[in-house]
Computed example of a mutant assay.
Amino acid sequence: MSRADHVQLNVRSAFAHARAHELARRTGMTATQVVEDALRGYVPPGVAVTVGKLVLRGPILVRPAGGSSVSLEEANAALEAARERDD
């Protein structure tokens, strides 16, 4: 007979506890399901990656502060390169 695996996560934040239970009541899910769903969808912020003259900040390409301006053609080329890289 196998032993049951009892895993527990203690949350010490009053806000996180209240919000998880509020969302559980509103969605009909358990608090555990709410937390699991939130963790599945979480993507930690990444390191800025240079794409042409643009810099990748999370899922968005932005022009870095300072430096020369970026033309529309250069921006479109960088976006297309990023899209092809992600595929």
Rank of each mutant, 00 (worst) to 15 (best):
M1S: 09
S2A: 10
S2T: 06
R3K: 14
H6R: 13
H6F: 09
H6W: 06
V7N: 13
L9K: 01
L9T: 02
L9M: 10
N10E: 15
N10K: 15
N10W: 10
N10Q: 13
V11E: 08
V11M: 14
V11D: 07
R12I: 11
R12C: 03
S13D: 14
F15I: 10
A16E: 01
A16I: 13
A16Y: 02
H17Q: 11
H17C: 03
A20R: 00
H21E: 11
E22P: 02
E22I: 03
A24P: 01
R25W: 04
R25I: 01
R25P: 02
R26S: 11
R26H: 07
R26M: 08
T27N: 05
T27Q: 11
T27L: 07
G28T: 01
G28V: 04
G28M: 06
G28S: 04
M29S: 10
M29A: 12
M29W: 09
T30L: 05
T30H: 00
T32A: 12
T32P: 04
Q33I: 02
Q33G: 15
Q33D: 15
Q33M: 07
Q33N: 07
V34L: 04
V34A: 02
A38E: 05
A38Q: 05
L39N: 01
L39P: 00
R40V: 15
R40S: 10
Y42T: 14
Y42P: 14
V43L: 14
V43K: 14
P45H: 08
G46T: 09
V47L: 12
A48G: 04
A48Q: 05
V49K: 15
V49A: 14
V49T: 15
T50Y: 09
T50Q: 15
G52N: 04
K53F: 08
K53Y: 11
K53P: 08
K53W: 08
L54Y: 03
L54R: 00
L54N: 02
V55Q: 04
R57T: 08
R57C: 10
P59T: 15
I60F: 06
V62S: 09
V62P: 01
R63K: 15
P64R: 00
P64M: 04
A65R: 11
A65Q: 11
A65K: 08
A65P: 12
G66R: 11
G67C: 06
S68R: 10
S69P: 12
V70R: 01
V70N: 06
L72A: 14
L72R: 12
E73P: 01
A75L: 10
N76H: 09
A77I: 03
A77V: 01
A78V: 03
A78I: 02
L79T: 07
E80C: 06
A81G: 10
A81E: 08
A81K: 03
A82F: 06
A82W: 03
A82L: 13
R83Q: 06
R83T: 07
E84A: 15
R85M: 07
R85P: 00
D87H: 10
